[in-house]
Write a protein that binds this DNA or RNA. Structure first.
Lengths: 213, 213
DNA sequence: AGCTATGTACACCGATCAGTACCACTCGGG
DNA sequence: CCCGAGTGGTACTGATCGGTGTACATAGCT
């Protein structure tokens, strides 16, 4: 019975149209934005007929929501799952972007849709909060004094770098990383990293590696 | 000669149509975004016929560009012109937003248009750079070690707060202000009390309250 | 084979939108 | 008084877009 499998949902995979649609949507939405990408464009790129697209997604809104939902399961897994890094390094790794990162799709969606009640906006909000929580979690591992605050601050920096990069048309993540380093070292009581000034190393009351993962 | 007459351009101000169009455009663009606002909507809100609108602006693109250009002359004048504040206070004042600030129009434009060569995108870029320079200037007045860097960092924080507020649907400027305070105090050799380096201030330089109003 | 879920091709509808054309009105100045 | 620039009103064009209907093709399961 050909275990090519049906997804969690009852989707039958004749030729995997749904997959191709989502891939095409991801590419186009990221490149040109949501409102500037038509359903016809997506269908053409996915090599799928319009009718099929509407058999998988009730409408463009649902497609957009699903497009954003794609990233949900792996909330920056590439960053947080690097167990070979110290928590502090993991926090900073979140700022290492490939330089040509188009723009955070969640920011783009929230700005383009403008409707906080839109399912895609809800997804975006949830994702952004999840990122902040993941950062806070890692910050706690790193021994930060106020992990929630640091997580929220780092999330704000990431968003700022993404948005500003789009406006300025030049990379801003390195600047954000610099700020992040300051905040992290400022929040961790005893930082083993060489910090020029500001924070003074007290005794290593708490070892900087508490990572239990 | 009725000094009401013609402005810098040959525009006749019969009933100030151009003014009303720009006001209406500003309101609508800020509220609903650019792409979701039609010319007809602007005309209706401005109580102006479409005919008139197209006599003043060659097209929507020009209207958008002019809409952004409106803010150009006064680059956050309300903040930087407060000579009764210390430079440090002025830097922090840039983060005091009315809580219901829709979204930075320049970020919105850059995200919605997605074209760095669009005149409106150029205007947005120029404005953002100008803000950073103004901040750097003030940072220099405040005696920051690296004013350009601090200005860029603060600009990034503002953008981050604006973008994140839009996505999270809740104010983020206070968090940004907290970061700003850290950065500022970190960049100024001696703010109020001598804290050159390696100093052990009685309490962390992180101010718990930013807005002193 | 035969049935059903899935997909394709293509035409079509209704709505919206940017932009234009045309006519009538209304001012303000001569 | 007329003249004409500026304007309002309205209807139009051409294009795009979201979404649907229909008829036909294919793949897989029983």
């Amino acid at each position: 019975m050909t275990e090519l499998a049906k997804g969690p949902m009852g989707q039958r995979r004749g030729r995997g149209a749904r997959e191709r649609i989502l891939v095409a949507a991801q590419t186009l939405f990221r490149e040109q934005g949501i409102s500037r990408t038509s359903i016809d464009q997506v269908c053409a790129a996915a090599e799928v007929s319009k009718r099929t697209a509407y058999q998988h997604f009730a409408g463009k809104d649902e497609l957009v929501a699903e497009y954003l939902h794609q990233f949900d399961p792996d909330v920056m897994s590439g960053v947080f799952d690097c167990t070979d890094l110290t928590p502090r390094e993991r926090l900073l790794a979140a700022f290492e972007m490939p330089a040509s990162t188009p723009l955070c799709p969640y920011i783009a969606a929230a700005v383009e849709l403008r409707d906080p009640e839109h399912p895609a906006s809800r997804t975006a909000r949830a994702y952004k909060i999840a990122i902040a929580e993941r950062l806070a979690e890692t910050a706690r591992e790193a021994g930060a004094a106020n992990p929630e605050q640091l997580g929220e601050q780092l999330a704000l920096l990431i968003d700022g770098a993404s948005a500003r990069s789009q406006v300025i048309n030049s990379e801003s993540f390195s600047a954000a990383a610099a700020i992040a380093a300051v905040l992290i070292d400022n929040a961790i009581p005893a930082s083993s990293s060489p910090k020029p000034r500001g924070n003074r190393p007290t005794k290593r009351s708490t070892p900087d590696r508490i990572d239990g993962r």
